[in-house]
Design a protein around this nucleic acid. Sequence first.
RNA 1: GGACAGGUGGCCGAGUGGUUGAAGGCGCACGCCUGGAAAGUGUGUAACGGUGAAAGCCGUUCGAGGGUUCGAAUCCCUCUCUGUCCGCCA
Length: 431
Amino acid sequence: MHDIKAIRDDTGAFVRGLSRRGMANAQSVADNFLKKDKALRDLLVRLQGEQARRNDASKLIGQAKAKKDEAGATALMAEVAGLKESIQKGEAEQRELEKEIRDDLSVIPNIPAADVPDGADESANVPVAARAFGKPPSINNPKQHFEIGDALGQMDFERAAKVSGARFVYLKNDLAKLERALGAFMLDTHTGTFGYTEVSPPVLVKSAALFGTGQLPKFEDDLFRTTSEDPFWLVPTAEVPLTNYVADEILSEAELPLRFTAFTPCFRAEAGAAGRDTRGMIRMHQFSKVELVSITAPEQSVSEHERMTDAAQEILKKLDLAHRVVTLCTGDMGFGAIKTYDIEVWLPGQNAYREISSCSNCGDFQARRMNTRYRNAEGKMKGPVHTLNGSGLAVGRTLVAILENYQQPDGSVAIPDVLQPYMGKKVIGKV
RNA sequence: GGACAGGUGGCCGAGUGGUUGAAGGCGCACGCCUGGAAAGUGUGUAACGGUGAAAGCCGUUCGAGGGUUCGAAUCCCUCUCUGUCCGCCA
């Protein structure tokens, strides 16, 4: 959520930022805000003058009554009665205008950071050379993960379709255990090496939480929800409950940054993704993910973003999986982000790098929506915090990457060294 | 799901229609006192918005939203959250 004052004070920056995102009518969008903002402030000047007169008169009425000056009181009451209608009308107008501004504002995306490359879509994303890791392994006739899983008899899409429909899967035996092992390994790394606090959060949340992180109101179609009047929503990512943990709170500067990690299922309707990644586990309605969230002071967020990306990459490094990192261009970034790194892991079966993590700095955008602020040590209010989130990592896709990168000629799958203690074995074979 | 009790400033806690943005306490800041500290003592300590060069002035806010009234933290309605008990239950 943008600060209307920021739009007023530097309209040019607002328009340029939205234009870089590909919004064609950014200027008229800004003009609309300026017009409504002016109308609201003009209204407030008038309304507050009337309220001040009413308040003064009401105090005088109290004094007159205390002195038994009924005539004086009656005269004052008559004066205030005239103001009443005008004030009530003005207040209704004020509510209406404020709601309009908020509703308009709530669907405007964040402004990209200065160092984010311009571009319309993913083809304009820019690799971060210094973050590249490893080389794709040479594998003869590599199989895709669903072929491997099916041959092992431990990955069953047919039965999942019978029970739940498309985009669901049953994992069994060692593959089910591998998912659990990955979650534990990722959590242990983030808590042990990077100081994140492990959290087991709710995965059903109220609408306000999804507004806070920016999924609502604009992206309702991507979400699953309950049918109740006041619905619960299934979280599309643990970013939602982890970030909203601090919603409507005033934090103290000394406790920042806060770092949370959680291993949860995620639920996405994948509306509009028809025909994409229809085979295998790449794009599911339900998948598990280890999420990273940081709440920081504004001046900390840029370095925290690098640190968070380091933490996510560390998982892939320990698993010895080749990957690269790209800076998303303006046209490919999510709604709330000012800058995003995507981590893409090599999938031999697809002969391609595929996204396995996305780490975003959201600046104060979510903090404004959630109303999360902080005070300094002297107790002075410093304003909204910054928030960041990243996958550390998508567990389902990590499992896919392990199957495809560690596949053996005999159809078995070697278990990466760091996971062997969690799995209690070195190879996954046919049961 | 049912019953009852509650949501007041950074925290605790008074306050049931009138000069209350809110007593008192804690905490915090600054000063006095002290060799230094503690104790004691004095003063000050909300957010958001409007206006203004600034000082300041004005408005709004006592869980949220409506309403009654000249005037609401105080009365009415709706919602929400918390606590306790009952029911149900992994």
